Each structure stands twice: as structure tokens, then as C-alpha cells.
Amino acid sequence: MKVAIFISSRGSNMQALVKASQEEGFPAEIVTILSNNPDAGGLEFAKAHNIPTKVINHRDYDNRDDFDAAINEYLEGMQIDLICLAGFMRLLTADFVNRWRDSIINIHPSLLPAFKGLHVHERAIESGARFTGCTVHVVRPEMDDGPIIAQAAVPILQKDTPESLAARILEQEHKIYPLALKLMAQRKVKIHGSIARIEGCVESEASLLNPEA
């Protein structure tokens, strides 16, 4: 499976995906790293690992449709099968998402459907919730919506700040995103309406769908 990863900054989840993809027998190949930001730090990581990069700067386009059309043209030229969003800070149009239906996945730093959007860790702490976490999901046109592939629960500690909580959640993100990509590449993720079911999953993989914090 040929994969494109979208980033806007350093792309720590992108780095986790790249490292996983270099393991022997991994069923997906990262063929390009795309960014809307020419100064994204993750581009240097990609170049150091001999992965082709592409910058499509949203500021060069008059509207979102033209920006997404440029991305789509590039992806089709690269014969991409799957898109992984890894800190890509641009909302994709509904037309683009529907064109790539069930072929875009994203990671979000909460247990969706809770705490969609921004300032997630601050909101989780302020809510008084005892647990939060992270979610890999199939992308739909609505923000932070779509069938859930994998989640990891992380406790919210009494002493937590948004920064300390974010750091612990990020550790789990780096576990479940490579797993979700692997499951997608193995065609084990089957979409049934709003539900993603994992079929043919071995016990060790199933246990990692919600790893201990």
C-alpha cells in the first residue's frame, strides 16, 4: 500500500509511522511526505530518510478548492492508496474527503467523540474527566469525525498540566498510529456505516487497540 503523510510542522507522528514502515515485513510504504508549510521541520526528517517531499503552500491558492485540487493531482500522480494526516493543520474540503472516502486516516489527542477540535488537553482537565487519550479514525467531512480504528486511554492525574498530559498522550499516539496504518494496509479494517471493525486480528494486535498508559 502506497502512503502519503500530510504534515504542517515537525510531524512526530509522521516520524513514528516512517520508523514503523522501515521494519521488515511492514505492509505499507511511505512514498511521500506532503506539507502546506515550506518551513515544516518534518520535511528535513523525511529528506534524511530518503522519502520524497512535496510542499503545496495553501497561501499560493485563492481558495480551498484550488488548494485541494493541487493536492489531489499530486497524489494521483504518485498513485497513492492511503493518506495519513499527522498534524496537518488545514481543513480538507468535503469534495476532497469524499473523493478519498475510506482512504484518509487521522489521529486526534482525545478519546473521540469527546473533545473534538482544538485546546483538547486544557478542556479535558477543566472538565474533571478522569481519563482521556487518543484516537485514530477514518476521516469524514465533519471535523474529527469518522469510524474509529484504534484508541488508547490515558489517565488524567491531579497534578497534570496541559503540557504534561499532552506528553503522555503523545507516547500512546506513537503506538496506535503505526498499528492503525498496519491494520489498514492489511485490509483488516472494514467499514460498516459509522463503525470500523477489525477483522482477522491476532490477539497481540487486539490488545494494542487500547494499550495500557
Rank of each mutant, 00 (worst) to 15 (best):
D62T: 01
Q79G: 00
K190T: 08
S103R: 15
Y61L: 12
I83Y: 06
D81S: 12
T53Y: 09
P147M: 10
A48E: 15
L112R: 02
F96A: 09
M143T: 07
K159G: 05
P211C: 12
N36L: 07
K116P: 03
T53Q: 15
F26G: 02
D60F: 14
E126C: 11
A20I: 04
H121L: 14
A153S: 06
E126Y: 07
G193H: 14
A114N: 12
E23C: 10
E29V: 00
S204E: 15
R101F: 03
G128V: 09
L118D: 00
P155Y: 09
P52L: 11
S110T: 02
A40F: 04
I5W: 05
A124N: 07
L179P: 02
I30K: 07
F6Q: 09
M1R: 02
R187Y: 05
A206L: 09
I169S: 08
L34A: 01
L165G: 02
A166Q: 10
L170P: 05
T135P: 02
N36Y: 07
V136E: 00
S35P: 07
L111W: 00
Q15K: 11
L170D: 04
S21T: 00
A180D: 01
G133L: 08
A69V: 02
K190N: 04
L165S: 01
P109Y: 05
K54V: 15
G117L: 12
L208S: 06
I148P: 05
F115Y: 15
R130I: 07
A114T: 03
W100V: 10
E23Q: 14
M78Y: 02
H137R: 07
L181F: 13
I33Y: 03
A40P: 06
L75S: 00
A86E: 06
L208P: 00
T135W: 01
M89L: 14
P141F: 12
G11L: 12
W100L: 14
E205Y: 13
I191L: 12
N63L: 03
N13G: 04
S127P: 10
R99S: 03
F131P: 00
N210Y: 07
I7M: 02
N13C: 05
T53P: 13
A46R: 10
A16E: 02
H49A: 05
S207V: 14
V139E: 03
M89F: 13
